[in-house]
Design a protein around this nucleic acid. Structure first.
Lengths: 229, 229
DNA sequence: AAATCGCATCGTACAGCGTACGAGTCAATC
DNA sequence: GATTGACTCGTACGCTGTACGATGCGATTT
């Protein structure tokens, strides 16, 4: 084992509901916990971005000392992994009778993409080999749906993999692309600076005002057409 | 302007061929240059990974002081951006007569993916808004080929975007997935630890022995079928 | 020959980082 | 009362990116 695996050496606190507050936190700060750490990390990432998250700042925000975090968490990498996975939770809409499988798949994948775009830092955390339970649950659901829709076992991996690629690529590309309106002027200027070296891109206005959502949906449809004929 | 833009405040050295060596480097180290910095960065990244690149270590490798780098480069971020783009250079095979456009597209995109997989750190650098000349050149080539293949102007952006997504997703996913044979045993163990909570994934052996290349190609074909009917 | 100027290099210093280590505090148990 | 285990945290170490200013150099101007 290479430092990955179960969180630090803790076993989750056992003190349920008993003491109204301990003496440790004189100003009513609740005790540290994995949940609070992850939630705080997400807040901090949302507010300050990737660079804004440091163990010291996270601990400050939680009213704790920096080293206290390390009881609940092995290292900073694990905080990132947990934050990413926590943002990818998925609650399937509870449908009694099975809707059309294709609608389910599209819904889940669009929700996936939306969840990541809601937290722009998440795209930067993707290229690490961290498969948290929520990511695995989404893949499981995807596989199950496709399988019950009649995709052959032999083609299942290709299907899952291609669809996942599409979602990942769409979020990563958009993160690297989208100028989110705050510096659209800068983009204009940048393109102008290229002045004719990339005529096709310029004339297609690829970098400027794209219908990202529509393109995502369209590519998804083509993939599904091909994968599940 | 927000610290992005043209490299630092240098204008590239003017001394062409004249002096055989200056007095500054008594042991024959060639002078610093953007090219040498970028090449050194790629070497260091290949050898030590993302975390292994620091300005001090890079300067050491080049036989220079750390702060000397900052004459040629604005900051560390720019080093990353330049390293990524430098790895994505593409030389189209010189074909006199136009081959089939689809073969050209597939070749270019497979080369793109291969280039990134050859430098595993590159996937982690994707989710930043850095569109270097080589990336733009690839997009330009892609757009031009599709356009000359008859893709309507209105559909061009969707096509470029979907194909790009596919490549990005494939490299990012693989980077986060592939256990590159060094710890395949760890993967077995990891999956065993999940013990039945993700039956579809387990039975499909999705995480273990996949035909990544074939899946990439298959998804690409589906996309091209749909995009360019 | 002397002064000036731009390019380029680099030593020092600072604030911040992740985290190893060990001492500390508390509640529950024996 | 003593012990144990869960949990917190102060200090310290080595490392980071880079701001600042001093220095050297070749070429140009005076």
């Amino acid at each position: 084992m290479t430092t990955k695996g179960g969180g630090a050496r803790s076993k989750r606190s056992k003190r349920n509901g008993a003491s109204p507050q301990s003496v440790r936190e004189p100003r009513g700060e609740p005790p540290l916990s994995l949940e609070r750490i992850v939630a705080g990390a997400v807040e901090l990432l949302d507010a300050e971005g990737l660079e804004g998250l440091s163990m010291r700042r996270l601990a400050d925000r939680l009213g704790a000392g920096a080293m206290s975090l390390y009881w609940h968490v092995a290292n900073k990498e694990q905080v990132f992994d947990l934050a990413l996975d926590s943002v990818l939770e998925y609650r399937a809409s509870p449908h009694v009778e099975p809707r059309d499988w294709r609608g389910d798949v599209v819904h889940m994948l669009e929700d996936w993409r939306a969840s990541m775009l809601r937290h722009p830092w998440s795209a930067s955390l993707l290229p690490r080999r961290a498969l948290g339970p929520n990511i695995l649950a989404r893949l499981e659901l995807l596989g199950k749906t496709l399988s019950s829709a009649g995709v052959a076992q032999a083609d299942l991996n290709v299907a899952i993999w291609s669809l996942w690629n599409h979602v990942m690529g769409a979020t990563v590309t958009r993160a690297s692309f989208d100028l989110s309106k705050d510096d659209q002027a800068a983009a204009q200027q940048r393109l102008a600076g290229l002045s004719g070296r990339y005529p096709t891109i310029e004339s297609s206005r690829l970098l400027l005002d794209d219908d990202w959502d529509g393109a995502f949906r369209k590519g998804l449809d083509f993939l599904l057409d091909g994968l599940c004929p």
